[in-house]
Write a protein that binds this DNA or RNA. Sequence first.
RNA 1: UCCCCGAUAGCUCAACUGGUAGAGCGAGCGGCUGUUAACCGCUAGGUUGUAGGUUCGAGUCCUACUCGGGGAGCCA
Length: 502
Amino acid sequence: MTDSFTQICDLADFEDKEVTLAGWLYNSRASGKIQFLILRDGTGLCQCVVEKGPVGDELFEQLKHLAQESSLTVTGTVRADQRSVGGYELAVTDAKVISPADGYPITPKSHGIDFLLKHRHLHLRSQHQWCIGKIRHTVIDAIRRFFNDNGFILIDTPIITATAGEEVQTLFEVDYFGEPLHLAQTGQLYVEAAAMSFGKVYCFGPTFRAEKSKTRRHLTEFWMVEPEIAFINLEGLLELAENFVAFIAAQVLQNNKNELGTLGVDVATLKKIKPPFYRLTYTETVNILTGQKTKDFLAGQLKGLHQEKQQLENKIGELEKQQAGQIKQWQKDKIAAELIELRAVLAETNTRIENNPKHAKLAAEFQWGKDLGGSDETIISQMHDKPVFVTHYPKQAKAFYMKTDGDNEEVVLNFDLLAPAGFGEIIGGSIREDDYDLLVARINEQNLDIENYNWYLDLRKYGSVPHGGFGLGVERTIAWLTDQKHIRQCIPFPRMMDKVYI
RNA sequence: UCCCCGAUAGCUCAACUGGUAGAGCGAGCGGCUGUUAACCGCUAGGUUGUAGGUUCGAGUCCUACUCGGGGAGCCA
């Protein structure tokens, strides 16, 4: 059936020819004797120009009253026109309504986030979510391609698991025929086993964490890719990670120019994502956080925020004055919409002003040995224009499986990758402890039940080798690359703490 | 779990210190031959989240609850 219809993305090949498009009415504007129907077919948007002459009065009237998101086929001649979205438009000769969509709830005007999440099944049709969906596809394709082309074997790890990879409190429990098991929060332990078979492997799938985290960077169900490599050291891992992330960014730049443009993403910042990334040790990071540089940086930022606030308030005051004056109704409406926008930005600026001193205090009083907090990561991330590796965290702050640094018993051979401009962590990884006795000691130190790790310990009993890997959060990566405020926009059907909409 | 903010028409928001609930979008009708979240005119649309309280009078003040947003801790 698809064959008989032309796709909007291919219109350039059909200039001056007659085609039939099949899709949904995205928006329409009608004048007395001419109508502009914006049709979307999943591959793009096309302006269809309907004139009374060629289509006749009856069809003209029917189309005039057609609701947004009604499905239809449209036949006409393709012609180039700069005034049209996509550069081509259709001079309509015929159209058939497949199914009307009266009362479609999402209008072209603004909506609140709660409303949109409740209507996510329909909101997926919007330009914004469509662009993100296309980019998500590119990111996932790039992930698989990168590993497949570099000799990695895909290993599917189980979703229902018995062993814990991370903190026990963050597990979702499953009643497995009466036995309490839980949903996987990482495939790492399994992928380590597979690395001893194939050398280089990766797993890629959904991950579940029952974290009580209500932030713009958290989902309870998210997608993570975890490569694991035998015979690798920390520097090797860092190189792999930076090449990997740079490859994803390059693929998005190459394949999603239009989508990035529609979303208003600054392409120049994406072009900067090239190796080598910055490298800091945890200790260097702590010194930066507690030092003058951070103090100055945050003070400068606060000053900038106050200026921003002042400018916003001036602008709002000005608009309010204009609004009270004698102007046309439509101008008032435009100002009202602008005011809503500005007030939202102002509220956000106020929050940042409020948080700035707290963050400054946390950073200044940071004690060596603690894990970096969200605000600390944000500060480091904001100071850089490219991703930053932070390596060699204190042993006590990190998971039992991370290998102790031979040169410094206090720290482990691990790293986090922080995306720049304040976005924060997108990767966490480490070299794994490969010595049987040391691993047992670490399990006991952290009061974990050693019974649960018998099979994992076998990997150290039978031909153990140095190995390591990392996990990259897909939604966080997409949110960073597309400059989204909240990662819930970056998965089709988000699951958040205490809230699953549809 | 803690802190802050919010809930008014289908949607997005107004309503100065308590005094008759408004506008745009969407819907319906009409007008307009090149529109770009088109525009112009008319019409319909409300027990102001729930339950109490203060008051001559509550959308506005107080208490509790429900739901939502933002932030913190923790993380990819």
